[in-house]
């Protein structure tokens, strides 16, 4: 709270008093009453000023404290909980109302949070349930090999992929930590993803190259597999005539850069900035290949939660490269 603002707030009352005193002074001058003249001209303004100072001090103390608390608190909406009583009337009224407001809001937030948690739990449970029939379906397809079953298996694989996406979507919103960071060779992650996609990769004759994948990073295995699977899925979807995918890793002083590079159809310059947006389907995604606009969005979200960075470079007609950057902390190096 500043003097200037405080005074401006009191401007009307100050002016009114000013005019009143000057008028009195003029009248007193006419009846020549020097003593009263001094009393009114000096005493009253002085008293007024002292009163003003006291009020300003009181309010300044109160509001400054709130301001400081608001800055320090992470959840500013809990402010009324920590406010101390004011030593003036309106301040106490204010606190009272704020407390009522805060309570009702806390209730509301709690209700939404609970709903959200329940919904998330339901989704996770549902996903685990649905995996069972998928497993049975795959088993049946394997046991009764035929052309129809092969095609059925492909569809089952798609269902599985979408299910997986839903699971990680639910998890990406989770507040608590449900991942496990450990040292993982990138090779393992890539191998799992390639095995998962081997059918398409082999039949579509997509060439696979790997460089330096013995490099290890600190990450959650499952989450990383999911992320790389999304990226590889895109490389497969938007492949060119003679497709290849190159997986490579570079260890720098402070980071490991893992790159997945393809020679696919690429992304136009105008769209490249938006690829990580939720629900964004570029002209590629709206074309003959269907896209949900969730894949890369989720990748970025999961990477951020794990403390990795994900970048995408692309040129239309030349290919796309996705880089995942794993910071290497000195903590790990010292071990």
């Amino acid at each position: 709270m500043k003097w200037k603002d405080f005074l401006r707030d009191r401007l009307a009352s100050l002016l009114l008093w000013g005019i009143f005193i000057i008028a009195l002074e003029v009248m007193l001058m006419a009846v020549s009453q020097p003593f009263l003249q001094i009393y009114i001209g000096v005493g009253i303004p002085l008293g007024f000023l002292v009163d003003l100072c006291l009020e300003f001090h009181k309010k300044k103390k109160f509001y400054d404290r709130i301001e400081k608390q608001a800055e320090e608190m992470e959840q500013a909406y809990l402010l009324p909980e920590v406010m101390e009583d004011a030593d003036f009337l309106e301040g106490n009224y204010l606190i009272q109302f704020l407390k009522v407001m805060e309570h009702s809001m806390a209730e509301e937030v709690k209700r939404y949070r609970k709903d959200h948690e329940e919904y998330k739990d339901y989704i996770e449970m549902w996903i685990h349930e649905v995996k069972h029939p998928i497993a049975v379906g795959k088993m049946i397809a394997e046991n009764h090999r035929s052309e129809a079953m092969e095609s059925m298996e492909e569809e089952l694989q798609k269902i599985e992929d979408y299910t997986e996406q839903a699971l990680y979507y639910a998890r990406s919103y989770n507040v608590e930590k449900d991942y496990l960071i450990k040292e993982v060779p990138l090779q393992n992650v890539v191998a799992e993803v390639l095995k998962k996609n081997k059918k398409t990769l082999i039949t579509e004759k997509i060439k696979i190259e790997m460089e330096n994948l013995e490099t290890t990073v600190y990450t959650d295995n499952k989450w990383m597999e999911f992320v790389v699977n999304q990226v590889v899925g895109n490389s497969i979807k938007y492949r060119s005539e003679t497709p290849y995918i190159l997986f490579s890793a570079v260890r720098k002083k402070e980071q490991v850069i893992f790159s997945v590079k393809d020679n696919g159809i690429g992304i136009s310059e105008s769209e490249i900035k938006r690829v990580f947006e939720k629900g964004f389907t570029g002209s590629n995604g709206r074309g003959k290949q269907k896209s949900t606009g969730i894949g890369l969005y989720l990748c970025q979200k999961l990477c951020r939660r794990l403390g990795h960075n994900i970048l995408l470079f692309s040129r239309e007609g030349e290919g796309t490269e996705v880089r995942i950057i794993f910071p290497v902390g000195s903590y790990y190096n010292e071990r």
């Binding site: 191998a191 990769l201 082999i202 997509i206």
Partner: peptide
């Protein structure tokens, strides 16, 4: 060839044609 490659891929040898 596909069956053979599929087997190799399961053994983490990602060979092409």
């Amino acid at each position: 060839r596909d069956a053979l490659m599929s087997y190799l891929w399961d053994s983490e040898m990602f060979v092409d044609d």
